[in-house]
Amino acid sequence: MRYMMLVYSTEGPDGLAGAEAQRIYEGHWKVMEEATRKGVLVGAEPLAPTSTATTVRVQNGEALVTDGPFAETKEHLAGYYIMECENLDEAIEWAVKIPTACQGSEGCIEIRPMRWQSSRAEPEAIAENVASLNG
């Protein structure tokens, strides 16, 4: 089953900088390389820092666009991984390797199972999956 690992980190306003950034990137590269080698990596991307974020809400048909992430939190979404794992314990073992430390503070990884198993989300496949959720 696929799991998404959401990487939460504390970060400065302009994201990572300097030697710290280098250390983190190397850590991620190691995980991606090992996961690819083992055939479990489906995807992984860093996100540009929260200073580049834009939030969109719709109220009464009107688009409300604001600067910044949807909520002011100490830890922000810094990136994600998607991995194919047998079970939660395997996903946890990978999550433990993913670096979150940023400018001396710790972050965390949120693991979410991904419900729709088909890699191509066709209408019939989605309907079938939704139906099985209600079953």
Partner: peptide
Amino acid sequence: QEARIPYEVPPQDR
């Protein structure tokens, strides 16, 4: 069920 918590004894190191 949804998160697939395995029905297993954890490995030694855990």
